[in-house]
């Protein structure tokens, strides 16, 4: 959900723009280490992936459906710095090319959806992976928990922003209850999809999952055929 213009007052919008600019500048510097001179083509294609995967509808039932936000998914798949860059590029493009999300709210949107979700998601992921035995399963569980926490965390950060620079006086408790409560539900959906997506990438190209680097040991080559292969899959 993108914040439109007029939702957050001008001084707070400028402040979040400064935060977003600093975050993106740091990410640009650090992403060079994740991607080197491949940055433009690889980050560009990953951003195109995120943009498109947000259009993939996951039916919830009763005719409604939701879609991925993708912050934690990107952090686990390509690393936090590249993820911040890709999410920021997606948000800038949605704002300028599709009028989705206010121009003056761009700083807030990048801070919340580009930086908070990625940073919180990756921190949770790293903690989980460190605590659990190194296996494909714990990477998937880490991705699940990362998404589960990151969505309500972004909602909580939004409530904080709104308290500072919101344009209407809503009692803090009811805003927290509405925003965080609702986003806990969204976070569950995001977590299931993120976990499933990461584990399906792990099954075919574990080398592409940034968060699984150095964790997965190569197992012995196993030949499966006929019924046993079907039974295992």
């Amino acid at each position: 959900m993108h914040i439109p213009d007029g939702f957050i007052n001008a001084p707070t919008s400028v402040a979040t723009a400064v935060v977003a600019a600093a975050g993106v500048a740091l990410a640009l510097r650090k992403a060079g280490r994740e991607l080197d001179e491949k940055t433009a083509p690889m980050a560009g294609l990953v951003a195109a992936f995120i943009f498109a995967v947000q259009m993939l509808n996951f039916p919830v039932g009763a005719g409604t459906s939701g879609h991925l936000l993708g912050g934690s998914l990107a952090a686990v798949l390509v690393g936090p710095w590249t993820a911040v860059l890709c999410m920021s590029v997606v948000l800038i493009t949605q704002s300028l090319l599709f009028a989705d999300g206010g121009i003056t709210a761009l700083g807030s949107n990048i801070t919340l959806m580009g930086i908070v979700t990625v940073v919180v998601g990756f921190a949770v992921f790293k903690t989980v992976v460190r605590l659990m035995p190194s296996s494909a399963r714990s990477v998937a569980v880490g991705a699940f928990l990362a998404a589960l926490v990151s969505v309500p965390a972004a909602a909580a950060a939004f409530v904080g922003l709104y308290e500072v620079g919101g344009t209407a006086d809503i009692p803090l408790e009811s805003l927290v209850a509405a925003m965080v409560g609702w986003h806990v539900l969204i976070g569950i959906g995001e977590a299931i999809i993120t976990g499933l997506t990461v584990s399906s990438v792990l099954a075919v190209r574990p080398d592409l999952v940034h968060g699984a680097r150095g964790l997965l040991t190569k197992g012995p080559l196993e030949l499966r055929s006929g019924l046993s292969a079907q039974a295992r899959s």
């Binding site: 491949k38 083509p41 690889m42 560009g44 294609l45 990953v46 195109a48 992936f49 498109a52 995967v53 993939l56 509808n57 996951f58 039916p59 919830v60 039932g61 991925l68 798949l77 959906g189 299931i192 999809i193 499933l196 997506t197 990461v198 584990s199 399906s200 990438v201 099954a203 075919v204 190209r205 592409l208």
Partner: peptide, 29 residues
Amino acid sequence: ARNPRHWPVLAQGAGAFFVRSYERGERVH
């Protein structure tokens, strides 16, 4: 896909889509 029970199929598609996008990035590079 009609309900959350179908999500694993969609998520597998999303995973395959990531692999394809990433590999396209490598080819483009």
